[in-house]
Simulated assay, not measured.
Amino acid sequence: MEQQNLRLTSVEIGTLWLDYMSDSMAVCTLKYFLEKVKDQDVRPLVQFALGLSEQHVQAIAEIFKQEGMAVPTGYSDEDVDVQAPPLFTDIFYLRYLRHLSAAGMAAYALGLNLAVRSDVRQYFGHCIDSTKELSDKVTQTLLSKGVYIRAPYIPVPKQVQFVESPGFMGSILGENRPLNALELSHLFANISTNAMGRVILIGFAQVAQSQDVREFFLRGQDISQKHIEVFSSLLQQDDLSAPAIWDSEVTDSTIAPFSDKLMMQQVTLLIAMSMANYGAALGASTRVDVAGEYGRLMAEIAQFGEDGAQIMIKYGWLEQPPQAADRKELALSR
C-alpha cells in the first residue's frame, strides 16, 4: 500500500493538531512583533519565523483537508491588533524567538519519532531543519549583541570517576555533594524558561481585558518568581551564578495587542512546556533534594494549569483536540 494512502494514526493527528494550534497562534504573535520591531538585526529573524509558521499552518491544513478532517479554528487576525503600541522591547523579541525555536524543535522531534506516513515524516523533518536554521541565526544575533545568557562554568574533568558512596544521592536535610552537569543544565534551562514566562505574564497582566484572566496572569507572575528563586538558590549554594532576570523588557503599555483568548493559550503552552521540562529534570536529577523540589513545584504548576483551563472553558476558548470514539455512547444512542 502506498504510504500516502495510509490513514493518519491517532498520534499523527494529535501532533499535527497541536502544531496547527501553536503555529496559528505564532502567526498572530509574530505579525504583531514584525509591525513593532525597530532593530534591523532582529527584523529579518521575526520575518523568517513568521514565514515558517505560515508555511506550517498551510501544510497541516492541506493534510487535514485531504483526510476529510475538520481544520482547527485556531487563531486569526481577530486575535491580534498590530496597531497596538509596543508591549515588549526588541531584545525580548529575540529571546522569544530563541524559546520559540527550542519548543518547536522538541515538538517536531516528537512528531517525527511517532509519525509513520511519509508525507507527515517529511513535514516534521522539514520543520526540524528550518527551525534549527532559525535557532542558529537567533543565537548568533544574541551573541553579537552581547545579550546571550550563558550557563555557569564548571571545571573540566581530567579523569573518569565512578560513584563509590550512596551519599552521591544526597538527602533532603543533610549535606549534599555539588550539583553535577546534568542537574545544572536543567536548573539553568528552567530558570531561563521561567524568566521568559514571567516577562510574558507581566506584559499580559497589563493588557488583559477580563478581571479573572488578569488575576490569573498576576498569580502566574508570583509562581514564576517563586520557582526562579528556588532554582537559583540551588545554584547559589554551590557558589554558581543564576541567569539574570529581564523584567525591564516590558513597556508601560496597557493597550492589548492580543485577545484574552490568545494570551491564555500562550500561557497554557508555557505551562505545558514547564511540566515537560520539570519531568525531564526530575528524571535526570540524582540528588534527592533537587528531585524533591521538582516534584513539589510540578504539583503547583499542574494546579495552575487546571485553573487556567477552567477559565478557557468558562469563556468558550478551549478548542477540543480530536478524541477516540465513545463506544458506550454510540451503543446507547441507537
Rank of each mutant, 00 (worst) to 15 (best):
L97I: 01
V82P: 14
Q122F: 14
L94Y: 07
V116N: 08
L100F: 09
R95A: 01
R121I: 01
L87E: 03
E78S: 15
D90K: 15
A102L: 08
E78T: 13
Y96C: 01
R98A: 04
T89I: 09
V82Y: 14
A109R: 00
G111Y: 10
H126G: 01
L94N: 01
A107P: 05
S76K: 13
C127E: 03
A102Q: 08
Y123V: 00
A109M: 06
V71F: 14
S130V: 09
D81L: 09
R95Q: 01
S76W: 15
H99W: 04
C127K: 05
Y75H: 15
H126V: 06
Y75D: 03
M69Y: 13
V80Q: 09
Y96I: 00
Q122E: 15
P86C: 10
G125P: 04
Y96A: 01
E78N: 15
Q83K: 15
V82G: 10
Y108S: 00
M69P: 11
E67G: 13
A70H: 12
A115V: 03
S130T: 11
A103L: 06
G74S: 13
S130E: 04
G68V: 08
Y75E: 00
A106L: 11
G125D: 09
A109W: 00
T73M: 14
G74N: 11
A84G: 13
S76N: 14
F92P: 01
A115S: 12
L94W: 06
G104S: 10
L100S: 05
S101N: 05
A115P: 06
M105T: 01
D119N: 07
S130I: 01
V116E: 04
Y93W: 02
R98W: 02
A115R: 05
S130M: 10
P85S: 05
V82A: 15
E67W: 08
P72C: 10
H99N: 03
Y75I: 08
D79N: 13
F92Y: 09
V82R: 12
L100C: 03
Y123S: 00
Q83F: 11
P85T: 04
H99S: 04
G68R: 05
D77A: 09
L87Q: 08
Y123G: 06
H126N: 12
A70Q: 10
D77W: 14
R98Q: 08
V80S: 11
A107H: 00
P72F: 11
P72N: 09
Q122R: 05
D77M: 11
A106P: 00
R121E: 02
P72Y: 07
V116W: 11
I128C: 06
I128E: 02
T73C: 00
F124W: 07
A115I: 04
S76C: 12
I91F: 05
D77G: 15
R121N: 07
